[in-house]
Every structure is written in structure tokens, then in C-alpha cells.
Amino acid sequence: MRHIISLLVENEAGALSRISGLFSARGYNIESLTVATTEDQTLSRMTIITTGSDRIIEQITKQLNKLVDVVKLQDITEGNYIEREMMFVKVKAEGDTQRGEVKRLSDIFRARIIDVTDTTFCIELTGSGSKLDAYIKALHENNIIEVVRSGSMGILRGEKALTL
């Protein structure tokens, strides 16, 4: 099962390596990990996407909670949640036909073209991981120059929140 674990972590050097080190040392899967500070500069918010049996997920949350730098943690897949990922794609865009095709496709996916040259487009797209996958699939593979994905972020719906 795929789980999204949200963490509030002390914004200190080494916190990230403690967390990533835990995953590698104990052999847990890690699909993606995103991290940045919150409105409180002393705290970082992290989203980890991981997979495993219920038993493994229970161990992951317990082991993460045990880390001294982890202030609070929640497996948001246990509730109603929103998940988004951001992607930049740089594609070849040469000649009117190709440029038009990429533009149309981007409109369909509600992607935005954020940089343009004579021969390339840079496109920004936000959505679920599967939407991002679908967009990549829809582009011709040999047109893709570069893909940058942020990894997923998650947040609980409604009034529930992961705060101090």
C-alpha cells in the first residue's frame, strides 16, 4: 500500500539525513521526499511517499517518531487528503505543427508554458502523480529534453491539520 506521511521536523542541519538514513538503514521504500520550511522558520514540513505492508508502515511511523528531530507526524492517507506534485518539462518545439501540438496538449492538461525559445518550450504542470505521468506519456518521448518533478506534497482536507 502507498502511504503519504507528513512530518513536522526541526529545521536543523542533519535532520534530513537522519530521516533518509533511517529509510536506507532499515530497508524501507521511499518513492519521494519533499521538504521546505514552514511559516515557522524553526520547522520544516516534509512529505514522504512510501509503500509497504501495514506492519512496515507502522514501523516506519514509529521509527520516524523516535527520531529526536521529528516533532510531529501523520499518515495522511488515513484521512481525506489532497495530493499534488509539480513538474517542469522541457520539450522540443520546432516548426508550427510541433509548437501547436504541444500548446494544445498543454491546454488540455491545464499546463502552462513558462519559457519559450525558437526550438523549445518549458512547461509547468501541477497535479496528481498519475496526471503527470499521463502528460509525459502524451508527449512524444523523443521530444522530451528534460523532466523535473518535485515529488508529492500532501495536506489533509477540512479543518484537520498537522500543526504543533
Binding site: A13, R18, V68
Partner: peptide, 14 residues
């Protein structure tokens, strides 16, 4: 030292 000891300490500080 913080990196080397990390997997075998309860916690460490620099």
C-alpha cells in the same frame, strides 16, 4: 563524526 555516528546513536549534535 555526526554523519559517521548517525546510524548508531540515539541522537547527535554538532
Amino acid at each position: 563524526a555526526v554523519g559517521v555516528s548517525r546510524p548508531c546513536v540515539k541522537h547527535n549534535f554538532l
